[in-house]
Design a binder for these strands. Structure first.
Lengths: 228, 228
DNA sequence: CGCTGCGTTGAGCTTCTTCAACGATCGTGG
DNA sequence: CCACGATCGTTGAAGAAGCTCAACGCAGCG
């Protein structure tokens, strides 16, 4: 697959003309990061943004005591650090490859020129930023208004819908990472998984989880009920 | 002040040409909302976005049990609900006027046409969305990695810097609203304000708060220390 | 006057975290 | 091939932070 074809497969760049893909191809930098490698750190100069081509990347914040809050885990096709291109000048969080990852890097000045000249690219970018905003709003809501079992249930149902409404979902990330994504710690997550299993809501087998009682999971996710 | 002048005073629209202000003026709808009036509700059809001209507006989520989490309190000059223009089709949260407010409403289709034809407007919009994204990321970090005293300290220092580094800051909103903005409840906020006063960090007089020990407030805000 | 919105304080309880120990798995180098 | 360390997960006991419930105070205003 050549560069232009790869670019055309990225949702952010959908609907562009062949010429526009050529322009993108001219400024893109193809990079690889091994598992556990840092892509950028909070406070680093925001020199451009990325699109993940393959692999898995986490975006996270750290507290002074070392506790981590994952803001997002990105899979193939997703852009990250776009905000750094348009606001402020430094990355507001850390980015690290959870799996060996291939990313396309777009340098800030060249990309700004491109987007200024391409309204449909700008519209795509605004849609992407807006979607991200919605997800963050959802995350704030979850952290503040739901307890951990509710957040977990919501996450499992999200996974199910993104994995084709299957009864069995795949976490994709280690449980320790899931804990950080849900705003808690591994111990607490482990206890809650055990509790939900005992109550017949789910069945856990490593990173595979079967959703046995969707109705009750949905009640939990809505914050309408407690886990006895 | 005529319409074009008012538009020119809005940061989102800065740097546009006179002709562009005329175009904006043609699609804008001038609206007023009394104190306590709902501007839109979560799930409503996202028919456009708003810029607050005067007054005070809160954007918030509600849990099924009625607990509220304020995502943002907007003052004059700030746009809100922009995300609804570019992603999804419904508002993802509620908006309510905390004070009598005047807003400019921009209908979605007309504004999309406008922004597609005006690259500098698009760049401004992307900057605005990106800034919002940063603030949300910060809020997630606070909710997850800091305790309530830390969030309060961070908020007070934010207020101080936006109010000209004054020793005395003005909350602008009721303490019950501040509690919701910080992801807690009025009782807890009240207790913490009392505690911080007794320890000489601040002095509270209604909505006026004097910052007596900036160093220690900054430690708290960074999450590096606890409130004895 | 009495209502309503707003704030404070106390007692008890739930949830979550901390600290500590332990078990399983896996890849690597001796 | 086994041993070792590293990563990851689980479980228990104790403690802290924050929430719920309830009562009360106080100011503004119809």
């Amino acid at each position: 697959m050549n560069l232009q074809e790869t670019l055309a497969g990225i949702p952010l760049f959908k609907g562009l003309t062949g010429e526009q893909y050529d322009e993108l191809a001219m400024i893109v930098v193809d990079q690889e990061f091994g598992r556990g490698r840092t892509i950028f750190s909070e406070g680093d100069d925001g020199v451009g943004f990325y699109v993940l081509i393959s692999g898995l990347v986490k975006i996270y914040k750290l507290s002074p005591e070392g506790k981590e809050q994952i803001l997002h885990v990105f899979g193939p096709g997703e852009p990250f650090a776009e905000a750094a291109v348009f606001a402020g000048s430094s990355y507001p969080a850390h980015a690290l490859a959870l799996q060996p990852s291939r990313v396309f890097f777009f340098p800030r000045p060249a990309f700004r020129d491109l987007i200024k000249a391409n309204p449909s690219l700008a519209m795509n970018m605004m849609a992407s930023l807006s979607l991200r905003l919605k997800r963050f709003a959802h995350m704030i809501e979850d952290l503040s208004l739901k307890e951990v079992p509710g957040r977990l249930a919501a996450h499992l149902l999200d996974l199910s819908s993104s994995q084709g409404e299957a009864e069995q979902v795949q976490l994709q990330i280690a449980k320790a990472h899931l804990a950080s994504l849900l705003g808690t710690i591994p111990e607490t997550l482990s206890r809650i998984l055990t509790r939900m299993s005992k109550q017949g809501l789910i069945a856990v087998d490593g990173q595979n989880i079967r959703l046995l009682d969707r109705d009750q999971l949905e009640d939990l996710a809505a914050g309408e009920s407690r886990l006895g």
